[in-house]
Write a protein that binds this DNA or RNA. Structure first.
Lengths: 208, 208
DNA sequence: TGCATGCTGTGAAAAACGTAACAGCAATAC
DNA sequence: GTATTGCTGTTACGTTTTTCACAGCATGCA
């Protein structure tokens, strides 16, 4: 089992490496990749050790090969299908953002309660009535969900998603969700993030 | 100096506590707050120890008092002013989201390059031409910035913000930014977060 | 070939983080 | 008042994560 932090960094390495593949870079040293990713060379080498990829002294790492190696770790056999619930401002922004990037993750269904949104294709993805969550998530074997609904209904939505077989939730609602063991939850509350940044900004200002 | 993780949790505690203040709850035990925040009671007590707040056995913590205590730690004397650069889908979503919540953090200026957006008030906040970053950020003593611009210009925007005196950056562009020491940086790339969730979702599915 | 160089892989140390355990005290019951 | 209960503050411990340091090896050059 790979640690959370390592998985995040691997995702970043992959992205940086794929840009280099496009530029026809054949190989890179650990300190070069580390510098691009803003981590220490030791950190990078250790991360690669975890996934069992090995470079060679004096030559470094084969860019394309390494990128593919990370893919096989992160994606497994096939990329995951993603559902997004709550097509407000944030939901639409995320869906169109993900469409723009080449990513192995495809948002295959979105949900909302507003009848002006349901039944249409928004930001390139079909929007369904929220009552159809169980039917569609279970039917299409969707394993990952993004929650961008108001906080007062977030728990209810999470429960329905879990009951439909969702195994991972990315939650943007500013409320701590309760999910059973076996379901992975990542909270990305905007307010918390900003307050954290504001705190440390002040901290470093006071040092001046 | 308080750790990052602790600051995040304090922000969460405060939010939960303020909801209880509205409901006229006078006091709560550590295990009650911990349960709301989905952490262990020991974790909560330790976090409060860090900020020097002390409850009393048999009585617990005074809700309103504790909330104010957290405020004085996180906010200091006065709440920070925030600027947001890049009024695309995501930028607008974040601005209107922050307006909706009562928060000590106020977005006082937004910036964009699109002349259809600049000069107007969008989502309740004035949008300026991006060339005015230095003038307005320095002039109004804004210390925190949110970056929601495309990744190819993110570094350039970050540099300008840093030169204007910004001390903390919340970055939503999917690229690692380079900032000097003394400037706090938090990355919130959506793709990375989703790939992480997808990885652990698959991991827990395979265990079945 | 043999030597020097410099990068990799990894074990060991250090730091950060969370958990468990318990002494001490406020409140209540009697 | 005294005993009991049960929660807090804090210390000690275990775990995770990062950094350090160096042995070992591929490469380039004489």
């Amino acid at each position: 089992m790979i640690s959370e932090k390592t998985v995040e960094r691997l995702s970043l390495y992959r992205w940086l490496l794929e840009m280099r593949v496009d530029k026809n870079t054949l190989s890179l040293f650990s300190h070069q990749i580390a510098s691009m990713a803003c981590v220490t060379p030791a950190q990078l080498r250790r991360d690669l050790m975890v996934i069992g990829y090995t470079g060679s002294p004096g030559r470094g790492y084969l860019v394309k090969d390494l990128a593919e190696s990370i893919c096989s770790v992160l994606d497994g056999d096939e990329p995951a299908k993603v559902a997004l619930v709550g097509m407000g401002n944030l939901g639409r922004a995320i869906v169109s953002f993900l469409r723009g990037r080449r990513s192995r993750l495809k948002v295959v269904a979105t949900f909302d309660t507003d009848s002006r949104k349901t039944g249409r294709v928004i930001s390139g993805c079909r929007c369904y009535e929220q009552d159809k969550i169980e039917e569609i998530v279970a039917g299409r074997q969707i394993s990952v969900a993004v929650i961008t609904v108001p906080s007062d209904v977030a728990q209810k939505v999470a429960d329905r998603l879990v009951n439909s077989g969702i195994k991972g939730i990315l939650n943007y609602a500013p409320v701590p969700l309760r999910v059973p063991d076996g379901v992975y939850l990542e909270n990305r509350d905007v307010t918390t993030a900003l307050e954290k940044v504001a705190y440390f900004a002040r901290e470093s200002k006071e040092k001046e």
